[in-house]
């Protein structure tokens, strides 16, 4: 974490570290428990693996608790507790780009677009999705003219058709409601 990241960003990172660690611990514990009902040969590998992972995660939690209890020495910049605890966190990594800097609005817009894209995809298939989403997205988000959108989508669909249908005779994703 670089020093110019605002403090809220740093806090989000610290919370995320706890959430991710606990979530993976949850997954690994579930995996361990699920394996108990299998025959020994089938269960051995998953149990050894998830057991090991649980050990590692607990070790990480211990480091995190220790780092939270012991304030970092004043000379270092505000490094995330966990990285330091691991003994070798990368201090001079660049900030993780748009993910850290984008505001809530941008996130909302991008995620909404993705939800629309994949909902339309599962309902109506890729052909309808590309036409509707492609033209709509280019118009609303890309601020391009309708004609531009139609040409863009037309070229894209043509290329997809040539490659998938004509050359490889591969099926295209179909939707539940409409092929």
């Amino acid at each position: 974490m670089t020093s110019d990241t605002d403090s809220t960003g740093g806090r989000v990172d610290a919370y995320a570290e706890w959430i991710i660690t606990l979530a993976v611990l949850g997954i690994m514990s579930t995996a361990f428990l699920a394996a108990r009902s299998w025959p020994p040969d089938a269960a051995m590998f998953p149990m050894v693996l998830s057991g090991l992972a649980i050990g590692l995660l607990i070790l990480k939690l211990v480091f995190m608790v220790m780092a939270a209890l012991v304030p970092p020495p004043a000379t270092t910049e505000e490094t995330p507790a966990a990285d330091e605890a691991d003994g070798g966190g990368d201090l001079d990594e660049p900030p993780p780009g748009a993910f850290a800097t984008a505001n809530g609005r941008a996130w909302g817009e991008a995620l909404l677009c993705l939800v629309i894209f994949f909902t339309v995809l599962s309902l109506f298939g890729i052909v309808v999705t590309l036409v509707v989403f492609g033209i709509g997205y280019l118009k609303i988000v890309g601020h391009r003219s309708l004609i531009f959108g139609v040409i863009y989508v037309g070229v894209l669909m043509g290329a997809v058709h040539l490659l998938f249908v004509q050359l490889l005779s591969l099926p295209l994703p179909e939707g539940i409601l409409f092929p």
Partner: peptide
């Protein structure tokens, strides 16, 4: 740089 995280991710 973070061996512990690496091992956890590899287990996953």
């Amino acid at each position: 740089g973070s061996m512990l995280k690496g091992l956890i991710m590899a287990s996953a």
